[in-house]
């Protein structure tokens, strides 16, 4: 015998020793993880949510896999790309006409299409489109859509929606007799949506083409101080590192849970893990900063 294993490891683990009783035994041992209530916590939303959040963070902040592909944007000098981005973002902010914004949209769609064709990768195309359309929908369209209604921006009716017998007043709010989508309101919604689309599309188009580290480094041409660039760089690394740690923690929890956990247990585990993750990412953060300094980045 090489080493004497504990007795229980020699027994068959077919489930005979496991209590079939749904009630938790009245444990007296000193551990913080004994369930108190019978309420069960559904992990399904956490399942999808954590994976999705990690996926989003990684795809937005970790562009290394695309930045080395051989497309027309990779060949342009990073400083020119940065100046182009600043110029286009200023243009998007100052132009108040839907026609001008739409022109920029068409140009950006054209440039993006060439990029997608050049990459000729289905996953790249899917990821690129998702990166632009999701925030445009949520931050642009959905947020600005209420402005289309006449109770926010009054104007010429386009589509009649609801008719009340009389006008209603609540405190400082007023609900008109007829609720409709107004021409002026819809213009505002379209303008905001196009602005959000243009800003995100132009940023993704440029940032996609270079590793984030290089891009942050190039900010020196617009006189961003080295300490700020250093913080930006560490923040980017920190976000990726943190999102990976969270995902791995989730896997470890999933791997060791047999049933839907008790709420009280899950709160305690999450609390402890949040603390441990904070400690771990803080130490990683410090190490990353030290490693960057030791390699002479920004000479801080």
């Amino acid at each position: 015998m090489l080493v004497k294993l504990p007795e229980f490891l020699y027994s068959d683990n077919s489930g005979s020793t496991v209590s079939n009783n749904d009630q938790t035994p009245n444990y007296k041992i000193k551990t913080t993880l004994i369930p108190k209530k019978a309420k069960k916590f559904k992990l399904k939303f956490a399942d999808k949510g954590l994976i999705k959040v990690s996926e989003i963070l990684n795809t937005y902040f970790d562009n290394a896999s695309y930045s080395n592909s051989n497309n027309y944007l990779n060949k342009v000098n990073i400083k020119i790309k940065l100046l182009f981005l600043i110029f286009i973002l200023l243009l998007i902010s100052f132009l108040n006409s839907i026609v001008y914004q739409l022109t920029i949209t068409i140009i950006l769609i054209f440039l993006s299409t060439i990029l997608i064709i050049q990459n000729s990768n289905k996953n790249f195309a899917k990821s690129y489109i998702k990166k632009i359309l999701y925030p445009t929908f949520f931050l642009g369209f959905l947020l600005s859509f209420p402005a289309s209604f006449n109770f926010i921006i009054n104007g010429e009716p386009i589509i009649n929606l609801i008719h009340f017998n009389k006008e209603y007043k609540f405190w400082i709010y007023k609900l008109p007799e007829n609720i409709f989508i107004s021409k002026e309101g819809l213009s505002v919604t379209i303008l905001i949506t196009l602005r959000v689309f243009n800003s995100i599309c132009s940023s993704i188009l440029i940032i996609q083409s270079e590793p984030i580290e290089k891009f942050i480094d190039s900010l020196k041409i617009i006189f961003i101080p080295s300490s700020v660039r250093f913080i930006l760089l560490i923040t980017q690394k920190y976000i990726i590192s943190f999102s990976r740690s969270v995902l791995e923690y989730y896997f470890s929890l999933k791997s060791r849970l047999f049933t839907e956990p008790d709420k009280s247990i899950l709160y305690k585990i999450t609390g402890t893990k949040a603390f441990l993750l904070y400690r771990k990412t803080k130490s990683k953060f410090n190490n990353i900063a030290l490693a960057m300094k030791s390699r002479g980045i920004y000479n801080i």
Partner: peptide
């Protein structure tokens, strides 16, 4: 003891 408590084993065995 985390997994064992989940399995609702008897305290002595845990």
């Amino acid at each position: 003891s985390f997994s064992l408590i989940q399995l609702k084993l008897f305290e002595k065995e845990i």
